[in-house]
């Protein structure tokens, strides 16, 4: 309940934050975004950084914009900011569907999308959706800016490609305004984190699946795409049978021996849930495809 002592700096620009990271490189330093992963870890004594650099109020990290068919979401947007953006909901339907299910009301009012992605909690709701949205994570460090595709960003549990003095500044998502996006989640009844969560982004023409991107979190130690499910969908009519068949392929290319296995659910059960929730994400897509207006 009582965090250990630390020094606190509030950055007002990205550059200042990077300088602070560099200045404090010898200390255990953490960036403070919404704080909804970090502060609980500090309060329970698991985490004890020497320095916190608050980047929550850096103006350049806020804002949601659409530019040339690309949606840009500043890393320090709170979940509720993203959900409140018509642009985000139109152009990144899978991502916003996943954000709706993050934590609870209070958490969504405070936690940030960038903090979430950089924290790389495998049981978070966003990795699968980031993958299916083909998101690019833009990071800035002492050597300038670089862009990392979501599928190269995650290494494993809490491990990303972010360098020690780099800051995730924004998320770029190619517009998927013509697609339906859904997210189906089996939350842990205690923590609310995803035992499994499945994000789906489909374009459907006249009942036939033109493109499909399916991604999952919670099951493995980082978000994964479910290629075999995608392959089983493309070119097929989006009906009950196709969905059941496709969902049956959910674990085909995953090493089930490496599935997350903990108090909340065993690896075997996660594998089962992955199929069930893939099916539910796709069923939800059917509902949305049938009533596209409702998605707005």
């Amino acid at each position: 309940m009582y965090p250990d002592e630390f020094d606190y700096y509030e950055a007002t620009t990205i550059e200042e934050a990077i300088d602070l990271l560099e200045d404090n490189a010898m200390e255990e330093t953490e960036l403070l975004a919404g704080g909804h992963s970090l502060l609980p870890a500090m309060k329970t004594g698991l985490s004890s950084p020497d320095v916190l650099i608050d980047i929550g109020e850096v103006d350049a990290l806020h804002g949601v914009a659409v530019d040339d068919e690309t949606l840009e979401i500043g890393a320090m947007n709170r979940y509720s900011d993203v959900l409140g953006s018509e642009d985000a909901r139109e152009h990144a339907p899978a991502l916003t569907a996943a954000i709706e299910r993050v934590g609870d009301r209070q958490v969504r009012n405070r936690g940030t999308i960038g903090g979430n992605l950089a924290h790389a909690d495998p049981a978070s709701d966003l990795p699968g959706a980031a993958l299916v949205s083909d998101a690019t994570l833009v990071v800035q460090g002492p050597d300038g800016e670089r862009s990392i595709p979501a599928d190269e960003f995650y290494y494993g549990m809490y491990a990303t490609d972010l360098g020690p003095a780099e800051i995730l500044t924004k998320i770029e998502v190619p517009s998927a305004a013509d697609a339906v996006g859904t997210y189906a989640k089996k939350p842990s009844p205690s923590s609310g984190y995803a035992m499994v969560g499945v994000a789906a982004l489909l374009t459907v023409d006249d009942g036939t699946v033109e493109s499909a991107r399916i991604g999952a979190n919670g099951a493995m130690d980082h978000g994964v795409r479910l290629d075999p499910v995608e392959e089983a969908l493309v070119g097929e009519s989006l009906d009950e049978e196709t969905i059941a068949t496709a969902a049956g392929h959910a674990t085909d290319e995953l090493d089930t021996a490496l599935m997350m296995d903990d108090l909340q659910a065993s690896g075997e059960f996660r594998a089962q849930l992955l199929e069930v929730y893939t099916e539910r994400a796709l069923e939800a897509a059917v509902d949305r495809a049938a009533a596209p207006a409702a998605a707005d």
Partner: peptide, 17 residues
Amino acid sequence: GKIAQMGQRVVNPVANR
């Protein structure tokens, strides 16, 4: 201790890593 109590979810995958 603390890690057993609070970090149960991460111990196994972290050890593997």
